[in-house]
Design a protein around this nucleic acid. Structure first.
Lengths: 232, 232
DNA sequence: CTTGACATACCGACCGGTCTGTTTTATCCA
DNA sequence: TGGATAAAACAGACCGGTCGGTATGTCAAG
């Protein structure tokens, strides 16, 4: 055997496993973990029970695999976008701003069914999962905040904010806005919600780190519509 | 019959119904709607199946009643706090700031088990509920945003912001921060998370509407700890 | 001829909901 | 005033369907 012990030998099995994970993630985001049935997954993937239990010990292991896959993809997406932003700008302030715009552009490209956050979905069903999954989510959320914190740390190191503030606090704020943004976007069926929050956050950063640039209009601004019907 | 047709004759039945609703809300926040079992409710309230189905047609009706109760309580809480803030200050800017501080103080008083938002919990299980529940949540979220919008509208009418911004956008932002704050607070088991977001939001408003007051330290500021371990 | 990758029939537990019975409470009339 | 009476407020056994999980089998590839 060329690749012994079933290492990273992609082939058919891995593809099927990936299909199951992708379907499960979408279902968890739409119906919640407890609301998702194995039958749902089988119907979505066209597989049968035998196939599912060949790849996963059970629903609990699937739950762990889904959140791990999600966390890894999120982490990589951030790193990639961060690298792109750093290539497009040298100044730490501009790097943060460009990163946020890249993030907003990325969200623009996301079609519906509008995605949510697996972390948040799990959080509201926390009792379903053991403490190990809970602490794993906590760790990955912490890592996510840390990614933002690093970029903001570089910013604060070069520019004194107009008001005392920590990189940690600002990092927590944008992550909170993203999590809340997913909830609101889903509730209103409005895919632009999250982008608007990111734009407001950029405005906050601008006032903190470039208060003189008030005249220089922030290009690509996403203001909320002047009047929005609550039921729209 | 003095009170015909079982009108608003509180007494015993209503109290039991209220106990069921309170238990169900806590369970939905902890385990999600689908993860919550009728047995859970019966165990929590010490009742039996007969009692439950005497008060509710089924789990679906309970779900609707829970979210309606939650929405009404939230609405009333806002109105009450808003009235208190308006009594404590005359200036629209100060009224918003005082309101936010009252909100933070209120959150301080909340003991664990740390609450979440029923709207958000339902949002991540949206497929479980019919479109009528979904649109109801949308309407109530819209009303909530509208409450904030009215206060911020008065603020913008009296003070020109340092940067063009709409009351609607700012209202959406604070609501988004609250929703995301519940998620993060639950994930990290950190009851102060939401208060810190509110404080950051106040800082944003200060920069928007009182940029000269930089020297005047905002009393009762809640900054994030300088270094937070991601796993803490 | 072993092993991975599926398919299928089936099981047992659980869960939402029903049915019937019992207790308590409120109301009305002699 | 008090007992009849009806309705509300419960209790608890039971049922049918669903869901997670298992056991067994097939089939192709190496």
């Amino acid at each position: 055997m060329v690749c012994q012990k079933g290492e990273v030998m992609g082939s058919k099995g891995e593809a099927t496993r990936e299909r199951i994970l992708a379907a499960a993630e979408a279902l968890i985001l739409a119906k919640g973990y407890a609301g998702m049935t194995l039958e749902d997954i089988l119907g979505e993937t066209g597989l049968t029970k035998g196939a599912f239990f060949h790849h996963f010990k059970g629903k609990a292991e699937l739950a762990r695999a889904v959140v791990e896959r999600y966390a890894e993809a999120d982490f990589r997406l951030f790193e990639e976008m961060s690298a792109r932003a750093d290539r497009l700008a040298d100044d730490p302030y501009e790097r943060v701003m460009v990163f946020l715009r890249l993030f907003e552009d990325f969200l623009d490209g996301l079609g519906k069914p509008f995605p949510g956050c697996v972390f948040a979905s799990y959080t509201y069903e926390s009792r379903q999962f053991g403490p190990e999954v809970h602490s794993y989510i906590r760790e990955r959320l912490g890592a996510w905040i840390g990614q933002y914190e690093a970029k903001l740390e570089a910013l604060i190191a070069t520019r004194a904010p107009t008001r005392p503030v920590t990189a940690r606090a600002l990092a927590e704020m944008i992550v909170t806005l993203v999590e809340g943004g997913f909830v609101m976007a889903n509730a209103f069926g409005d895919a632009t919600w999250l982008q608007r929050q990111s734009a407001q956050y950029r405005a906050y950063l601008e006032l903190l780190f470039r208060p003189d640039g008030a005249g220089t209009a922030v290009s690509g601004d996403r203001d909320a519509p002047q009047s929005r019907s609550p039921s729209g």
